[in-house]
Write a protein that binds this DNA or RNA. Structure first.
Lengths: 338, 338
DNA sequence: CTGAAAGCGCTTACAG
DNA sequence: CTGAAAGCGCTTACAG
C-alpha cells in the first residue's frame, strides 16, 4: 500500500501543510519539525503522488513520443537523445511504437491528450485526416522529428532531404560514375520519399547523366527491401556501377544482395546509404553514407519542444540541420581506377 | 486550454454526473441527454483528464520500463514486444534509458513510484544496494526481463544462460573444433556474464578440450569490444579455429576483425554469437547464433507483470524460455572438411 | 513559522 | 433515469 501525506503528518505529529512544505523545500519550517517530517518520510518510504501533484499544479512533466519502429536503429537513436534531454529537464517519456498501425497512432494521440502530456513528438509523416484534425485542435505543442508532413502549422527538425540526396548523388558522380541506380523510399512520404528522389533526379540531370528506368526502384527503408530491389536491378541488362539507397538499412540489403550474387562492393558496384546509422561502421565494406546528425536531431527536437512548452519564443520555421557525406569503403573512385 | 467536465456539462445543459456517466458508458442515461452530451464533447474536443481519473480510481495504467541501452537492437526488440502487449491492454509505457548510469536508475525508480506506475520492468542486473533496498520496499510489482539479479524476491523471464552457453559450445565441438575461444561479458553480471562463462568452461571440460587462457577474453557485449578482444586473440600464438561470443554484437565485431586481418569466416575461424538479433541475418557471412526468443521474452514479461498487477496467481519461480542454435553460415563443419 | 480550508478535475455512493 | 455532495492526495492562499 502506498502511504499518503496524511500518514506522514500523523506520524510526525504535524499538519499536512507542514509536510507539504518540507516536501517542496520551502523555507520557514523550523529545523526540528523538518527533521521529524523527514524521519517519518524515511520510515514509511513515502513518495508523494505525482498524480495528485499534477492535478493541482496543472503540470504533468510528461512528453508523448510516437515512434514508427522501435527496432530501427535510426529511430531508437533519436529516441535515446530525446530521452537524455527530457530526463535532464525532469520530463518523462510516454512512448508509443505504432509499427505502421495508423489506428494505434490515433488512439495514442487521444491517450496523450487524456494524460495531459505537455508536448508531443512525432517521427513519421504518414498523417491522415483524422490525425491531422486531432493534432490541430489539441491544445498541446506538437513537433516533428526527422520528418516533415504536409502541414504548415508544425515545426520539423530535419535535414534538407532534397539537398542531401542531391549532394549524395553528386558525390557518386564526382567519383566518376555515370550509371547510378537509386533505391528510394515510399513516395507518399514527402521528406524521405519524394524529396530524396527529386534530389537524385535533379543531380543526375544537372550533370547530364541519363536516368535508366530499370535502375530506379523503391523500397520501404528496410534491409529486406534493399536486398529485393537490388536483385531486380541486377537482373536488368546493364546494372549500374553505383547505387544510392535512401536508407542505410536498404544500402546494407543491397550490399548483401551484391555479395550473394558473387559481385564485389565497391569494385563492381559502389553503394551509398543515407542516415549515418550504426550500421555504416558494422558493415563490411564499411558503408559510405549521407549522414544525418541523428543524435543532434533528437536533442534539438527536445530542446525546441521544451521552449514551446515554456512559451519562449521559438522559430516559426523548420529547423534544418547539416548533412554531410561520410566517406567509407563502399564507394569506388572510378577516376583513379582508370 | 483544456476543457473540463464542467464545460461540457454547461454546454450540454446537464450535470457533471451525467457527463461522467456517458463518458464511462453507463446505462441509465436517456438517449436525448446522451446525444446532447456527446455533441458538446465533440464541439469542445473534450478529452477527460486521465490525471483526475487516476486519482479517484487509484489506477494509472502506467508501466515503468528501465532499459540499459535503447540503441541496442536486442533491448529495443524486447521493448517493442512489451509495448505491443501493454498497448493491447490499455497500459502505457514510461521508458527510462539508463545507459550505464546507475544514478539515473535510482532517480527513475523514485519517479516511477511517484507516478504510481502499476508495475516495473527492469532489463539489467547491475543492481546496487540503494536500488535493491528501494525496489524491495516499493509496493509495486517488479519483474526482470532477460536478466536475473542476485535476488530471490523477484521473478525473471530468461533463458537458461548456463545451459545455452553449454549447448552453444557443444555445437562447435560437434562441428569438430578443438580450440574454441570465448568472448564473454561482464563477470559482475550473473546471467550473461558468469553463467555463460561457466557454461562454456563446463562444456569444454566435459569433452576433454583444454582451455587456453589467451583464448578466453571478456568484453562489454558491444561490437567494438568484440573487435578488440578478437584482435588480442589473433595476436596470440595459436589462434582458435572457432570463437563463441556471448552477444551477436560482439560476434559481428569479431567477424569484422577477422576480415580486416585478411582471414576468412568460417574457413579460417568459425564464429558463433548469442541472442539471435537482427544482426544475424544482416551480417555476411550470416551469423550462427544461440538464439533467445526475444519477442516472446518481451511478451511473456508483460503478460506475467499484468497478472501480478491484477493479483492473479503467478509462478513463484523464474520463467525459463527455450533457447536454440540457429545455424547459419559463420560456422564451419571441420568433420566434413577433413 | 504553522495549520485549517478550499480547490485541482474527476467518480461514485446516496437520495430522489 | 438524474443530480448534489463527498472524496481521491496533494498545494496554496489566507489567517494567525
Amino acid at each position: 500500500m502506498q502511504f499518503k501525506i496524511k500518514d506522514v503528518a500523523k506520524l510526525a505529529g504535524v499538519s499536512v501543510t507542514t509536510v507539504s512544505r518540507v516536501l517542496n523545500g520551502e523555507k520557514y519550517v523550523k529545523d526540528d519539525l523538518k527533521a521529524k517530517v523527514n524521519r517519518a518520510i524515511d520510515e514509511l518510504g513515502y513518495a508523494p503522488s505525482h498524480i495528485a501533484r499534477s492535478l493541482v499544479r496543472n503540470k504533468t512533466n510528461l512528453i508523448g513520443v510516437i515512434v514508427p519502429d522501435l527496432t530501427s536503429s535510426f529511430y531508437a537513436t533519436i529516441l535515446s537523445s530525446i530521452e537524455e534531454v527530457a530526463s535532464a529537464n525532469d520530463y518523462n517519456l510516454l512512448v508509443c511504437n505504432i509499427s505502421e498501425n495508423i489506428d494505434k497512432e490515433l488512439k495514442y494521440l487521444n491517450v496523450f491528450q487524456e494524460m495531459r502530456v505537455e508536448g508531443i513528438i512525432i517521427m513519421h509523416e504518414k498523417i491522415n485526416e483524422p490525425i491531422r484534425a486531432l493534432i490541430h485542435r489539441m491544445p498541446i505543442p506538437v513537433i516533428f522529428s526527422s520528418v516533415k508532413p504536409m502541414d504548415q502549422k508544425f515545426i520539423s527538425v530535419i535535414v534538407d532531404d532534397y539537398k542531401a540526396a542531391y549532394d549524395a548523388t553528386n558525390y557518386l558522380i564526382e567519383l566518376g560514375h555515370d550509371a547510378i541506380g537509386f533505391i528510394g523510399g515510399d513516395m507518399r512520404d514527402i521528406t524521405s520519399g519524394q524529396n530524396r528522389y527529386i534530389g537524385y533526379r535533379n543531380a543526375m540531370s544537372a550533370s547530364g547523366k541519363k536516368l535508366v528506368e530499370a535502375h530506379i526502384r523503391f523500397g520501404d527503408y528496410k534491409v529486406k527491401s534493399g536486398y529485393e530491389q537490388m536483385k531486380l536491378m541486377l537482373g536488368s541488362n546493364n546494372p549500374p556501377t553505383a547505387v544510392f539507397a535512401v536508407s542505410d538499412d536498404m544500402a546494407v540489403g543491397a550490399m548483401n544482395c551484391i555479395r550473394d550474387h558473387h559481385l564485389r562492393v565497391p569494385e563492381d558496384i559502389s553503394i551509398m546509404g543515407f542516415d549515418g546509422s550504426q550500421l555504416t561502421e558494422l558493415a563490411r565494406p564499411t558503408l559510405t553514407s549521407m549522414e544525418q546528425p541523428i543524435h543532434e536531431m533528437g536533442k534539438v527536437t527536445m530542446d525546441v519542444l521544451l521552449k514551446q512548452i515554456t512559451g519562449e519564443t521559438i522559430p516559426s520555421e523548420d529547423i534544418i540541420l547539416e548533412h554531410r557525406v561520410a566517406a567509407r569503403e563502399s564507394c569506388m573512385n572510378r577516376m583513379k581506377a582508370t
